[in-house]
Each structure stands twice: as C-alpha cells, then as structure tokens.
Design a protein around this nucleic acid. Structure first.
Lengths: 159, 159
DNA sequence: GTTATTTCCGACTATTTTACTTGGTTATTA
DNA sequence: TAATAACCAAGTAAAATAGTCGGAAATAAC
C-alpha cells in the first residue's frame, strides 16, 4: 500500500463523517469540504473509491450526502487508505519472488516485513479509536465553528 | 522519511558492500553495479549521499571504491534510507502543529504515530542482521557467479 | 413540473517527483 | 602517461500526484 495526500484526505474525510453523521442523516461533501479545506470535486473522486470499497453509502439530491456503511469501530485506517490509494508492492520484484534468475532478490524479505508491519499497524487502528480521542473531539468542535474561510493551499510533500 | 527505489537500491548496495568488503579492501561501484543491476552512474549519486551521511568511506583510483565506515551491526536500515531519500514529514502541516488556526489538525497524531512506528522498526533493523540471514547469504553467493548479464529494466512502483 | 441540490462519472491538465543519463574533473595507481 | 575509479553538476524522460472541468442523473422542495 501507498501513503499519499489522497489517503490522508480520505481518512480525514471519514473522520468528519463519523463525527457529523449523528447531526445530519447524511453528510454532504460540501460540508466536509468546508471543514477540511478540500475541494468538493476532489472529495467526489475520493468518495467514489470509498463507495466502491463499500465503506460509505451515498444518496443524491437535497439533504443527500454520505454515511459510514458500518460503525466507525469496525472500519480500520488500513481499509480507508487501501480503498483510495493504488495498492503497490514494496518489493522490487512485484512479489513474484523470481526477480533474479528465478530466485528472490537480496532484500525481498526486508521489504515484505516492512510492508506487513505498516499494514498491521494501520489495520489495528480503527476509525472509532481515533474519533474517541479527546484531542480529536476538541479540534472537531473548533472546526465546526469556522466553516467558511479563505482557502489555504496545502503544499504536501508525502507522496 | 520516504521510501523510494533509491532507498531500496541504497540498502541493497550497502548489503553488497557488507558482503564483499572482506574480499577486497575497497569495493568498486562497478562491481556492485554488476551484482545488483544498477547503473554505475546512479550508484554514484546514491553513494555521494551515503558518504555525506557518514555511512561509507570512498577512495579514488585503481583498486579504489567504498567501505562501510562502521561495522554492519551498527548501521541501521533507517540511517541508510534517511541518507538517500529526502526527509519528509507525514503530517499535513509539516510538523508545525498549527496547520489550522494555531492548533493541530484532525489527524496529526495519527500520522506522527505511524511515522514513528515505521522509523523505529527500520532503526532497530541493522544491516548486519540482514546480512546474517541464511537466505541472503545464499542469494549473494548466486549473485557472485553471474556478474555480467543482460540488464533487465525494473519497473518499480513504490514511490 | 420546474428548480435547486447533490451525487455520480469520465476525461483532462499542470505540477512535481522519480529515476535515471550525460559530460565532464580530479585523484591514484601501475 | 595511461588507465581506473571516485567525484560533481546539470539535464531529461517518464510516471505519478493532485487536482480541475464539464456535464448527467437522481431526488427533494416549492
């Protein structure tokens, strides 16, 4: 798996859903866009993948929007990132194990170990855990108050 | 930190050094290039960073090349990757903690936790550990026998 | 039934990053 | 003096990323 801004946006947006879907039946992308300073168009792209991954349900029209398809406690961060970022394998030989003369490459095991390490960490972490945390609740409360402000361009460097 | 093919090449090249510096006083980039199917020019770029990071010593001229500056047991995989790949911070706000109205962003803690998780895993892993492994030794032995073969282009997808 | 809202969808584009190559210079040994 | 090999700066092609744009279809409110 890969970690890009798209993946981070996805996690942030899913947290926004988890935090606000008690207030409104469905949460619109517009409101998420306001909270998180991501364009609606880009959120659409992200949510089409989240929907394809079965993580959210969407309905159209006025008062429409999205909901989590399951409880936040059962959705892992891994699932979210995995749904939006292209899967990649960290190994040089694409997991084929025959990158060099039909044998595994020198560092094959190292990269698969690392990959597993990251995946398992993110899979243990549930959306619900993060939403629970006190700090997140505070930030969310603050964000609710300031929904329309000048957009800052975020120059993000993690690809 | 970032994980790119350059970082993987660096680790692989460092392993090659560790495996062969007992045979020759200094190991040339040419020989590494033959073993690992990386161009000498690209290896030069990588080694200039490894040298700047204090991980290797190089000397010029015939029979010249590189050596590990310390024992393989004391060099971590983290150090190697950190030396060649641009450092990046995984958080949206560049670690400033004031990405939104002077407070931390919604998922700030999540990304720093993940970043720390990855770094600590890679820092515990020493070059020596990997060289020790039986499998690696076997692959290295095989590679020693086939130093001049047609170059395969490796289409790597982990950025 | 018309209008506003919102998801849905495909294609397009600018920028950045990656993964190299090229063309030299300098040091060292034989 | 010739060969070898590190050293260095800059350039480049391809890929990936981070979006935008223009519409179409569904639904609710009026």
């Amino acid at each position: 798996m890969k970690l890009t801004t798209k993946g981070r946006y996805a996690v942030t947006a899913m947290m926004d859903l988890a935090l606000h879907q008690s207030e409104h039946e469905y949460v619109s992308l517009k409101s998420i866009a306001n909270h998180q300073e991501i364009s609606v168009a880009y959120l659409e792209q992200i949510f089409s993948k989240l929907k394809a991954g079965g993580l959210v349900n969407g309905i159209r029209g006025p008062n429409g929007g999205y909901r989590l398809s399951r409880s936040a406690e059962t959705i892992s961060i891994f699932e979210i990132i995995d749904a939006v970022d292209e899967p990649i394998d960290i190994t040089r030989c694409h997991g084929k194990k025959d990158c060099q003369d039909g044998e595994v490459c020198l560092t094959h095991g190292l990269w698969t170990d690392l990959s597993n390490q990251i995946s398992s960490f993110l899979d243990q972490l549930k959306l619900g855990d993060i939403v629970q945390s006190e700090r997140v609740r505070k930030v969310a409360a603050r964000q609710s108050m300031r929904c329309t402000e000048t957009q800052q361009t975020q120059h993000v460097s993690f690809t």
